[in-house]
Design a protein around this nucleic acid. Sequence first.
DNA 1: TATTAAAGAGAATAAAATTCTCATAATTTT
DNA 2: AAAATTATGAGAATTTTATTCTCTTTAATA
Lengths: 152, 152
Amino acid sequence: MSLNQVDRQILALIQQDASLSTAEIADKVGLSQSPCWRRIAKLEQDGYIKGKVALLDDKKLGFDMLVYANVRLSNHGRNNLAEFEELILSYDEVTECYTMAGTMDFMLRIISKGIDGYERFVRDNLLNLEYVQEVHSNVTMTCVKRTTALPL
Amino acid sequence: MSLNQVDRQILALIQQDASLSTAEIADKVGLSQSPCWRRIAKLEQDGYIKGKVALLDDKKLGFDMLVYANVRLSNHGRNNLAEFEELILSYDEVTECYTMAGTMDFMLRIISKGIDGYERFVRDNLLNLEYVQEVHSNVTMTCVKRTTALPL
DNA sequence: TATTAAAGAGAATAAAATTCTCATAATTTT
DNA sequence: AAAATTATGAGAATTTTATTCTCTTTAATA
């Protein structure tokens, strides 16, 4: 099952604004409402659309600290990767986590309230773990751009 | 204007799933539909909710390459920050961009199709610029976690 | 060329969003 | 403390949107 041009257009639209009505979308892509609706339903069914979410204003809610932290585990820790990853999933402050090519590190995106909030998180939840060998914090200053949209 | 417990609950819910109906949300937070709707409307009005978007499956759409690139500008480039940032905004492959504390670098989150897609992007759009001094690519391997939700 | 499968249009229905009116509780003012 | 104002909730009414259905057209296949 593959996507045609209209499908891509639909995806491009709703990844920017999921509050568009199917009628509006239909209009923009040159379809009538019901087939447009069916396409969207199919895109969800087939898993192209993972979900719809509201994006909140982090600054306004007090989250003024955004840090990308590189975490290096000890040899011992590498045998408990599953455990570490479970923990990461449970920490709401960690909004993203990747393993990196080259190094044996994890990169974490950590959002918190103030430097103190960040320090508390790192101390209590990362340095805490015996198998965490090193945490290197890369603090962001200004957000120039941030979008969830893919370059379709 | 400040948020009460119910407002926070509402935000916590819709940042996870924006397809919930106001009736469902109302139910979960212990309100009836209309006041719940009004709260949500106010949260939008007041800017706590920046928007609603559909999250797409990047892998499924062919975006299998995710890189965090550190970009260092020359002295000359630092006098054209505005121009550089404008460009960044125009590149759909760059989904995030921050200036970093400490260094005078930018950190870019770049999503593309394959190594070749990435290389093409960097060559054509970054190395291209005379005032870009250095691009350091940090390639991600596995995505352990990724959410847009704030730790409310 | 006949036949089947995909995909679109438009109308009908169901569900949800939005608005309105009224009641209650909290807060402020006198 | 009483009166008045404001904020917030409930429920019904209305409008809009999502969803389903039927029919037609187009495209693909035998």
